[in-house]
């Protein structure tokens, strides 16, 4: 079974925030909620500036799912982690458990009372009827059901952000790694890659 994965190539990411805006426009997400964000470190420091676009990583052992008191998360067969907004009570535990800061909560309401959680759906909608209006309202577009790749990756100007079947993503990664030569981890992503990378 294929597994859907994101991969952001920090050699390619130019911090243009195109993915962020593409995502928000596609899913009509309110201001203040960012399913995807671009992080830049060492801005302006020669040779050290790096950018990376991050969103939900769709973990196979998703901590958000483990911690959720209402058990509103579910993992699709293709590895996409989705959640049920009808169940979510907005407690925010997933935010604490997530290593990537993917869960987002809006700021509306008095005393900053949080709404329900919103996060990257890999453009795969949610538990509502596929391609229905309710689904769009709750989770945004369901591009996976339409046979398309997520909006962020399809709009990425430099094709730093790749999304799709892990095996395919891995192939692209291997291709680029081989072309670039040394100094790149052989494993895309994961903590291991991080720790051995440099």
């Amino acid at each position: 079974m294929s597994r859907m994965k994101f991969y952001c190539d920090d050699y390619r990411c130019v911090d243009c925030n195109g993915c962020v805006v593409a995502c928000k426009e596609a899913h009509e997400i309110p201001v203040g909620v960012n399913r995807r964000r671009v992080i830049t470190i060492n801005e302006g420091i020669e040779g050290k500036q790096k950018s990376l676009s991050v969103a939900c990583m769709h973990c196979s052992d998703a901590p958000c799912q483990k911690v959720c008191p209402t058990d509103c998360f579910y993992i699709r067969k293709d590895g996409i982690v989705l959640h049920d907004k009808e169940k979510c009570i907005g407690c925010g535990y997933c935010l604490y458990a997530c290593p990537f800061g993917a869960p987002q909560f809006g700021h509306e309401g008095i005393f900053g009372v949080k709404g329900v959680m919103d996060k990257c759906t890999f453009c795969a909608g949610g538990p509502d009827e596929t391609l229905s209006e309710t689904e769009f309202e709750h989770y945004g577009q369901n591009r996976i059901a339409e046979g398309k790749i997520p909006m962020c990756a399809s709009m990425c100007a430099t094709k730093a952000l790749i999304a799709g079947d892990a095996a395919e993503v891995d192939k692209i990664y291997e291709y680029r790694t081989a072309k670039r030569g040394e100094n790149t981890s052989l494993k895309p992503y994961g903590w291991e890659a991080y720790n051995n990378g440099k």
Binding site: Y11, R12, V14, D15, C16, G44, I45, E46, Q49, K50, S51, T158, A160, R176, K179, R180
Partner: peptide
């Protein structure tokens, strides 16, 4: 950037260390 992957060297000359310079 694809050129860079194909082995091109990128040189950036600028009064600022820009997002391009970073690559």
């Amino acid at each position: 950037l694809k050129g860079k992957e194909n082995g091109a060297k990128i040189i950036s000359i600028d009064p600022r260390y820009t997002k391009t310079s970073a690559h």
